[in-house]
Computed example of a mutant assay.
Amino acid sequence: MKEFVLIVGGVYGALAVIFGAFGAHGLKKILNAEQLKSFETGVKYQMYHALLLILVGVIFPFSGFSQNLMGWFLILGVFFFSFSIYGLVISAARGRKMAFLGPVTPLGGLLLVMGWILFTVNISAIAENIRF
């Protein structure tokens, strides 16, 4: 799981850079200001959590259920949150909004919050052993 979390963190980070550039340059002409801001929110949250995934991949051994669950919550949370925003924004800009993605975004946000809670629980358990 540790290697998977690190790989996903790297992939999410690379995609955040690509999507950020795409939003700033390629979508600027077809999105209104509100849509562009929503797209940028998806990119920011994706990058923040890509960095968190890399951090937890370095710090945690992923030897217990709680740490594995934290990894899955963060991975799936980013996917549901950011990618549903991308789908909603781009589909709305093309005049065919995929409304079924609307409930997916808050589900992703909930998973991210749960991932952060598990991060806090797990980091407090090993804090005395971390040396930077």
Rank of each mutant, 00 (worst) to 15 (best):
I18A: 04
G95W: 12
A93G: 14
V104G: 05
A24V: 11
L110Q: 03
L53A: 04
F19R: 00
L110W: 01
L101Q: 10
P61E: 10
I90P: 00
G77S: 14
E40N: 11
L36G: 08
L112D: 07
A99D: 15
N122C: 13
I90T: 14
G13I: 09
Y45G: 06
G108Q: 01
P103R: 08
T105S: 01
A24S: 10
A14I: 15
L36I: 07
F73E: 04
F79W: 12
M1P: 11
I59N: 05
L88C: 07
I75V: 13
V121M: 12
I7T: 12
L15Y: 01
F60V: 01
V17K: 03
G23C: 03
V11N: 05
Y12W: 10
Q67E: 15
A93P: 12
V113K: 10
K28H: 07
F79C: 13
F65T: 04
P61H: 06
A127S: 14
L101W: 02
K37E: 08
N129C: 02
V56G: 03
A127K: 09
G108E: 06
G87Q: 07
G9Y: 01
L101K: 06
A50K: 04
S63P: 00
F100M: 10
T120G: 13
E3F: 09
A33G: 01
H49I: 12
A33H: 11
M70V: 03
F100T: 01
V17F: 05
H25W: 01
F73H: 07
L74I: 15
F65K: 10
K44H: 14
F39K: 07
S84I: 06
L55V: 12
L112P: 05
G77P: 09
G20S: 04
A14M: 15
F83E: 10
F19M: 01
K97R: 15
S124Y: 13
S124C: 07
F132S: 06
F83V: 12
A21R: 00
G77C: 13
V78S: 04
I90M: 15
V104R: 03
V43S: 04
G87F: 09
W72V: 05
E34S: 15
G20Q: 02
S91C: 06
A24N: 08
L101A: 06
R96W: 09
T105E: 04
R94E: 15
Y45T: 14
M1R: 08
K97G: 12
G9K: 01
P103F: 13
G108T: 11
A16F: 06
A127W: 11
E3W: 14
Q35M: 05
L55R: 06
F19L: 02
E40G: 08
N129M: 08
S38V: 00
G10R: 05
G20V: 13
G64E: 05
H49M: 06
Y48N: 04
E40D: 12
I117V: 15
L112I: 14
K97C: 13
L31F: 13
L52K: 00
A99H: 14
Y12L: 11
V78C: 04
M114C: 14
A21P: 04
L76G: 10
V58M: 03
T120H: 03
K28S: 09
F79P: 01
I7E: 06
Q35S: 06
A21S: 03
G10E: 05
F100S: 15
V8A: 08
H25F: 02
I7N: 09
I85S: 06
Y86S: 13
G9S: 07
F4R: 08
G26N: 00
S82C: 12
E3R: 13
F60L: 03
A93F: 12
